[in-house]
Design a protein around this nucleic acid. Structure first.
Length: 895
DNA sequence: AACTGTGGCTTGCTTG
DNA sequence: CAAGCAAGCCACAGTT
């Protein structure tokens, strides 16, 4: 880690090292006298109550200290004091400090009525007491590209604008009325979440610290002219500290088979495990069966603390976690934290409601920040882009196995049956894994959420709980504010007009997507795959795609048509969305991707830049998707279609050009071309010409030693020049395929991997035949365990939502509920076995004997899975059919 | 009334 | 986000 002192470019800090700055006298004086409390506000002990610039000092929560070095991580609104407060991480004291607004900033929204009209409006009159001001303001109307005058309605509290049934936004048309107040505050004040700040005096506004650029970054900043890009480089290259944090996990003494419910917390908490970044490893236990003997108290892996009651346990846990600014849980939003609070309330623990704050779907802690890893890992962008689908089900066990290579301690006994010692171990490992998920790979997860906070300019709490479309929305709102643009209503964007030009290929879709080239079936050697480097984001950048620039109001732009449509694109103004994609794309490609691969840098730094470029990639990849999603506030169908139309144009133009040059295109999908055995010179020329013509860069993505194509699109496999194997779309790869068949599939692939020429295929055929004949024998002889035959299918809706058809997994799930009383929710993976009964399938749990299995179905499934690779290799499965004796054996089992 | 074949449709999973 | 695949459901028509 580089030392902070060396790169904080603050004069005062350099003269006197940061850590030694003395506490300002003013602050000391103030902290001794508690700040005045508003009459309406109730005061409880230990509850931080804000006033001007500082808070009451309590455990784990310090007041803002002038001269300190802070990172802005979060914010919230305090309704009692009617102020926004910011949560800063103090990097020296390793605490969260709260800073309450000192500017008198108030909530507001905009109306297009003039102030006079509004003053006479009955709804405004009704709320007159709570309205502070109606002020005329100039804003830029992005859709019509003109300056307009709007009225800023400034109010006393955010609920006047929105959040209740009687709020103003429910009564009259308002603009910018659904932005969270604390987010508004951050935008208006120009705060950068994840940025460094200091405070000059207790009641001043936090001032950005000018951070000295690391030497490797300097080179880039000097080279780049665009101030916008420079700003991005600076923000994203600032160091992220190893946050002091603690993982928490509780155990509830519930009867066998009954899950503890937050709504009805009737069973006691008897154990809590803690794992801190400072090395704390502790399990606190209320030994309700009195079985832990003094001599057993020692444990190699963690410290055991025995308490006499549940009340003592909760108090002790709260005492410890308050020492940590960041609390990590796995499912703490919906379980651990609300459960602790509710049990605490039942036991009459004072002030627990001030420490754990429950939202509708989340739980926050007053002295710091709570990160629920379950919510984070569930996030589809985190799952697919950041962790490339390394885990599929989101549970502590599966995520830890995938990312840490180790899982939970298995426990097949109930708490009643297990010894305390066993439960201790089990419980501790949960906290340990939870902590390690934030620490592995150089604190990747903590760095990732901070980096995303910076890009979205969104609080860490929100980043961990909201989806990518919210991250992007947040950043775009901020960009509107920076440009003084009024944010249009979704219906205004939709009302711009413009039309759809091509019917979607798939029924029920809103607009056309990409082109997939008809594959040439066969085995092809030496295939070069060229593709457009991030095609859709590049199109968005290069062709100025944004909701306001597609079908813009300028007459002279109407000539600038998207090929094959009447849609035109603005040539006068840069689109906001286009600008944002362009900037983060450039920053990623020109700076952070290079730094992440710079072998001259120490591994720690490279890992850091890897997180930066990876976070940027998450945003870049999602930009096209959100503009085509109706739920996105800047959704505009003609803009989404313009992107795909330009993509179609790029790929068709490239195919034509390639064929003109005598290059053989055998397949392609969306942004790629598979070129068979190309002449290197011609390939190079071709790529250059395309880039010149389309302003889109083509690159060689990979080279296959050989690739096997069938007549199916999105279905192929290939062996790369380095021996690696690519399997795309084939049945054998699908998560629903039974393990037994999957294994056979991969065994066959393993054989194909070594092949270099046509001749070698014939030898491989023999081996493959053996494998298949054996597999079928095993199946028919009933030698395959049921587990290996299970077909795993996700239940994606609640059971009652399947009204049109009843698929097999839904039938099975209903049976599970009826017969075993197992609760199934959306997201549950149902494992079914194909059976010979009327339904044709049953849940794995209810199949008792191998004799119920419909062997023929499995042979069929094996056949269709393997056929996808074998038909091209000219291996005829029918010829491999097993001798009559096995068929008769099968018959024997049937009767 | 029971069976068979067909095609449209639903569902889930993958590719880019 | 759309394109595309496999598998099964289900209504319907035609046959037995």
């Amino acid at each position: 880690m580089r030392s902070l002192d060396t790169w904080i470019n603050n004069k005062r800090s350099r003269e006197t090292p940061v850590k030694k700055i003395e506490i300002n006298d003013i602050r000391k004086e103030r902290v001794d006298t508690p700040p005045p409390v508003k009459k309406s506000g109730r005061r409880e002990n230990n509850v931080p109550i804000g006033n001007v610039g500082y808070v009451i000092e309590n455990k784990g929560n310090g007041g803002v200290e002038p001269g300190g070095v802070y990172i802005l991580l979060s914010a919230d609104y305090d309704p009692q004091n009617e102020k926004v407060y910011l949560k800063f991480y103090d990097i020296n004291r390793e605490k969260i400090v709260l800073w309450y607004d000192v500017t008198g900033h108030r909530p507001y929204a905009y109306s297009k009525e003039d102030p006079e009209a509004l003053r006479n409006h009955p709804e405004i009159i009704k709320l007159a007491e709570k309205i502070i001001d109606l002020r005329r303001e100039k804003k830029h109307d992005t859709i019509n590209d003109v300056e307009i005058e709007v009225t800023k309605i400034i109010v006393k509290d955010p609920l006047v604008i929105g959040g209740t049934r009687s709020s103003l936004r429910e009564k009259i048309t308002l603009w910018e009325a659904d932005i969270k107040y604390y987010a508004n505050y951050i935008f208006d004040m120009g705060f950068q979440v994840g940025g460094y700040y200091t405070l000059e005096s207790a009641d001043s506004i936090p001032k950005p610290l000018d951070i000295k650029d690391p030497p490797e970054i300097k080179k880039y900043i000097e080279k780049i002219d665009d101030p916008e890009i420079k700003r991005w480089i600076k923000i994203l290259s600032m160091d992220i500290p190893n946050y002091k944090r603690i993982a928490l996990d509780i155990e509830v003494y519930n009867p066998p088979g009954i899950m503890p419910q937050v709504e009805d917390p009737k069973y006691p908490i008897f154990m809590a495990s803690l794992r801190g970044s400072d090395g704390l490893k502790k399990v606190i236990v209320h030994d309700l069966r009195n079985e832990i003997k003094e001599d057993k108290l020692k444990h190699d892996d963690f410290e055991i603390e025995i308490v006499k009651s549940e009340e003592e346990l909760i108090k002790r846990v709260l005492e410890i976690v308050q020492e940590y600014p960041i609390v990590i849980t796995f499912n703490g939003d919906k379980f651990d934290l609300p459960y602790i609070r509710k049990r605490g309330e039942l036991l009459g623990i004072p002030n627990i409601s001030g420490l754990i704050k429950l939202g509708r779907n989340d739980a926050r802690v007053s002295w710091g920040i709570h990160i629920d890893l379950y919510e984070l890992f569930k996030n589809i962008s985190i799952k697919t882009y950041a962790f490339s689908n390394a885990y599929d089900i989101v549970s502590l066990d599966t995520v830890a196995r995938a990312l840490l290579g180790k899982g939970k301690v298995s426990m097949d006994k109930t708490f009643q049956e297990a010894t305390m010692e066993e439960i201790l171990k089990y419980s501790y490992v949960d906290a340990e894994l939870t902590y390690e998920l934030t620490e592995f790979n150089h604190n990747l997860v903590m760095r990732l959420v901070t980096m995303i906070s910076r890009i979205a300019n969104m609080t860490i709490d929100d980043v961990c709980r909201l989806s990518i479309s919210n991250w992007i929305k947040n950043r775009l709102i901020y960009e509107h504010r920076r440009h003084n643009y009024l944010i249009p209503l979704p219906q205004e964007i939709a009302g711009k007009g413009g039309r759809k030009h091509l019917e979607p290929i798939t029924k029920g879709k809103k607009y056309v997507g990409a082109i997939v080239i008809e594959p040439v079936p066969g085995i092809h050697f030496n295939v070069h795959v060229v593709d457009f480097a991030s095609l859709y984001p590049s199109i968005m950048k290069e062709f100025n795609i944004s909701y306001e620039t597609v079908n813009c109001p300028h007459v002279r732009c109407r000539e600038n048509k998207v090929p094959g449509s009447t849609t035109w694109i603005c040539t006068q103004r840069k689109g906001l969305i286009s600008e944002f994609v362009g900037a983060i794309r450039d920053v990623r490609v020109l700076v952070f991707k290079k730094l992440a691969r710079d072998k001259g840098l120490p591994i720690e730094k490279r890992k850091f830049y890897e997180v930066a470029q990876g976070s940027l990639k998450v945003f870049i990849n999602a930009m096209y998707g959100v503009i085509g999603a109706e739920t996105f506030p800047f959704y505009y169908l003609p803009a989404a279609e313009a992107i795909t139309l330009l993509g179609r144009y790029a790929i068709t133009t490239s195919i034509e050009k390639a064929r003109e040059k005598g290059l053989e295109v055998i397949y392609g999908d969306t942004d790629s071309l598979f070129i068979k055995n190309p002449d290197p010179q011609r390939l190079k020329e071709f790529m250059g010409e395309i880039e010149k013509k389309l302003r889109l860069k083509l690159e060689i993505d990979k080279i296959y030693r050989y690739v096997v194509l069938s007549n199916r699109k999105k279905n192929y496999f290939g062996v790369l020049t380095d021996g690696g194997i690519d399997v795309k779309g084939l049945l054998g790869k699908k998560s629903s395929t039974p393990p037994f068949i999957k294994n056979i599939f991969y065994e066959v692939l393993e054989i194909l991997k070594g092949i270099n020429s046509y001749e070698e295929f014939n030898q491989a055929k023999e081996k493959i035949q053996d494998i298949i004949v054996n597999a079928e024998k095993k199946l028919r002889a009933g030698e395959v365990p049921l587990e290996e035959l299970a077909i795993s299918v996700t239940l994606s809706k609640p059971l009652r939502a399947y009204t049109k058809t009843t698929p097999q997994h839904v039938k099975a799930a209903r049976k599970l509920e009826r017969v075993l009383g197992i609760e199934v929710q959306p997201g549950t993976i149902i494992r079914i076995i194909k059976t010979k009964d009327r339904d044709g399938a049953a849940p794995l749990e209810l199949v008792k004997s191998i004799r119920e299995v419909d062997t023929n179905k499995y042979v069929e499934l094996l056949k269709s899975t393997l056929e996808q690779i074998l038909e091209v290799l000219d291996i005829d499965l029918e010829k491999l059919r097993i001798d009559r004796e096995y068929r008769s054996l099968d018959k024997f089992f049937n009767f």
